[in-house]
């Protein structure tokens, strides 16, 4: 890691994290440091705990934190994220793009996005946008993910194809502009065009103030979004960290040589 990189402020710090799901250990001493402006890819074989990590950071209630800590920078201080409810984490700038986005029948995508955006604005002390101003703002974000306006008046994710759901997740990310975006298998179920669109969207949202952690099974997403770090998660721990070349090596050799 270069000296310049080290000066960037730390956004997320996961220390010796042990997590159980239904009494079964899934994460067994995981460490991770993410700084502003960085893109991290977390790869690993099935069942290694990749998705668990992103859900635990976002605050899913099904996971039992056995020990360790997760700290997140809030107002220039590292704060214990585990003490916050999922909605509070979101308000502080944590975003999880779901592997399987949930359907919310009867609630239009537009009103959901507006409610969500305004809840976060309120917390951060900025004015809520008027409906008209929000629509304008939304339009600019829809262009990023090449989404048609017809999606706005449909129920959230209801009747969306797999690819549309994933795009809708990135639209939400664009609207909420989080400081830490966790992308959980965002590439799965996407055809090559949709993958390109989603990746373009993510690339446009990258800045020196935010960080992206991508959980992925395949290297192909990394062809579009170049990570600064690639971590290999196996049996609940990060067993190898490198740059993008590690991903290429994994593509070629598989995971076996690390296990």
């Amino acid at each position: 890691m270069s000296a310049a990189a080290a000066e960037k402020p730390v956004l997320l710090e996961v220390t010796d994290l042990h997590v159980n799901v239904q009494d079964k250990p899934v994460l067994k001493g995981l460490n991770l440091v993410v700084r502003a402006g960085e893109v991290h890819a977390i790869m690993g074989p099935n069942g290694s705990g990749k998705s668990t990590l992103s859900k635990v950071i976002a605050g899913h209630p099904d996971y039992e934190i056995v020990s360790g800590r997760i700290r997140f920078e809030i107002n220039f201080q590292m704060r214990d994220l585990l003490e916050l409810e999922p909605d509070q984490r979101a308000k502080e700038g944590v975003f999880l793009a779901f592997q399987y986005p949930i359907e919310v029948p009867g609630v239009s995508n537009r009103s959901f996005l507006r409610t969500s955006y305004n809840a976060i604005c309120k917390h951060q002390g900025t004015e809520a946008l008027s409906d008209a101003a929000f629509d304008q703002y939304l339009k600019s974000k829809m262009a990023l993910v090449e989404m048609d306006e017809k999606f706005l008046d449909r129920g959230v994710n209801v009747g969306f194809s797999g690819g549309e759901k994933k795009r809708n997740e990135i639209l939400q990310m664009a609207v909420l502009s989080p400081r830490l975006a966790l992308l959980d298998e965002t590439d799965s179920g996407l055809d090559i065009d949709a993958l390109r669109i989603v990746a373009n969207g993510v690339n446009k949202l990258k800045s020196r103030h935010n960080a992206i952690v991508m959980v992925t099974h395949y290297q192909r997403l990394l062809d579009y979004i170049t990570p600064d770090f690639v971590h290999v998660l196996a049996d609940g721990k990060i067993v190898e960290t490198g740059d993008n070349s590690l991903a290429l090596k994994l593509e070629e050799k598989g995971y076996d040589w690390l296990l």
Binding site: G59, D87, V104, G106, V107, A119
Partner: peptide, 23 residues
């Protein structure tokens, strides 16, 4: 469902209300 809505910044009450209203 609740977690999904909460992870978008809505507290539990708001999340329930959105789900029920939609229904």
């Amino acid at each position: 469902q609740l977690f999904y809505l909460q992870s978008r910044g809505l507290d539990k009450e708001a999340a329930i209300s959105i789900l029920v209203n939609g229904f």
